[in-house]
């Protein structure tokens, strides 16, 4: 076990835990955002740089600070480590920079994007970005590509998190897509636009943090916040069969995996469950799903507030605010 302090809050976690996951155990504001890291996919993370944090003390044994900001999603904790996330102005400044970089080429076509309302980039830029943009250049664009008959790739929106590449690498028997080209001309592509055709390819839609990969059976059907998410399951021979049905009235508009509060699916679902069963009668409906990450979806207020949960959240916030150490103003600034 290792004891780490993140923004003044101490927590004990098993050795080998990353800083990000330690922060998630604390919860609340000290959790760094993550755009490319995905718990259930190996080797993800480290690329988007929004989870950068400052390590002011490496460990109890070697108290030297780390020279640069580190990617919290890939840096393991050490006993006695001291980490600053939102209490470090350097981190906030760097994160603001990363958000700006991510938005330089992003089309900002949210009004017509299916991901709007459940988009990690929207949340990120709202929480950590600046109000305006300083870029005045034409954005890079790509043609839209159909990856098979169920998935649409809109590369212009892609932030190159590589998650979908890892899905293809780790969930499907043969990877037929990857990254072509270099630098800001990099693009996710199936070589010679070959269709991705296997049982778990649809999960790349779920792992996509932006609207680059969307469900062709759902495209332009509805804004997500007009649909009601319902937990449901069915007996499936290929996957766990546990899904979220996104319903409008009695109609199932789309089926996705169950995302946790950090937008991650723990149990991936097969394409049959995702694309073939749009009849509510195919499913055992468990009840409404609580979406606490993307506030806009919860605006419908159709679910009962869980008072216990709310109480816990308030208590946690109180502890957090007490333990929070605000950075002292440096004499130079």
């Amino acid at each position: 076990m290792a004891k780490v302090t993140i923004d003044g809050i101490e927590i004990e976690v098993p050795d080998g835990t990353t800083i990000l996951n330690a922060a998630r155990q604390i919860g609340g504001e000290v959790v760094p955002p993550a755009m490319c890291y995905y718990t259930s996919l190996k080797e993800t993370g480290g690329k988007c740089r929004v989870c950068l944090v400052k390590v002011t003390q490496g460990s109890a044994k070697d108290p030297r600070p780390m020279p640069k900001l580190v990617a919290s999603c890939r840096t393991p904790v050490a006993d006695g480590m001291v980490v600053q996330n939102i209490t470090s102005p350097d981190v906030l400044e760097a994160r603001k920079g990363v958000v700006e970089f991510l938005l330089l080429n992003h089309p900002l076509d949210c009004p017509i994007c299916d991901q709007a309302g459940e988009c990690d980039l929207q949340d990120l830029s709202y929480e950590h970005g600046t109000e305006g943009t300083r870029t005045e250049f034409e954005r890079r664009t790509f043609d839209k590509i159909d990856i098979g008959d169920k998935i649409k790739l809109h590369m212009t929106r892609c932030i190159l998190c590589y998650r979908c590449v890892f899905v293809a690498d780790q969930l499907t028997p043969e990877r037929v897509h990857g990254v072509l080209n270099r630098g800001d001309r990099s693009e996710i592509s199936t070589y010679i636009e070959k269709a991705v055709d296997n049982d778990f390819s649809g999960n790349m839609i779920d792992v996509c943090p932006v609207g680059a990969l969307t469900d062709r059976t759902f495209r332009f059907k509805s804004r997500v916040w007009f649909t009601k998410p319902m937990d449901a399951h069915r007996n499936c021979s290929k996957c766990c069969g546990k899904v979220v049905l996104w319903m409008k009235g009695n109609e199932v508009l789309r089926v996705t995996g169950r995302k946790d509060r950090y937008g991650e699916v723990k149990e991936f679902i097969c394409n049959e469950c995702r694309f073939e069963h749009k009849n509510p009668a195919d499913w055992t409906i468990e009840g409404p799903r609580h979406i606490n990450r993307h506030s806009v979806i919860s605006q419908n207020h159709y679910e009962k507030i869980d008072l216990q949960n709310l109480k816990r959240e308030v208590e946690r916030q109180i502890v957090f605010q007490k333990g929070r150490q605000l950075p002292e103003a440096s004499p130079n600034s």
Binding site: V50, L104, F137, L160, G183, D184
Partner: peptide, 21 residues
């Protein structure tokens, strides 16, 4: 540097292009 950035991480991929422009 813009031409040679691998495009893996955001600050370099986007930033080098911006500097050049």
């Amino acid at each position: 540097y813009h031409h040679e950035s691998c495009g893996q991480c955001s600050p370099c991929r986007e930033g080098t292009a911006w500097l050049e422009k």
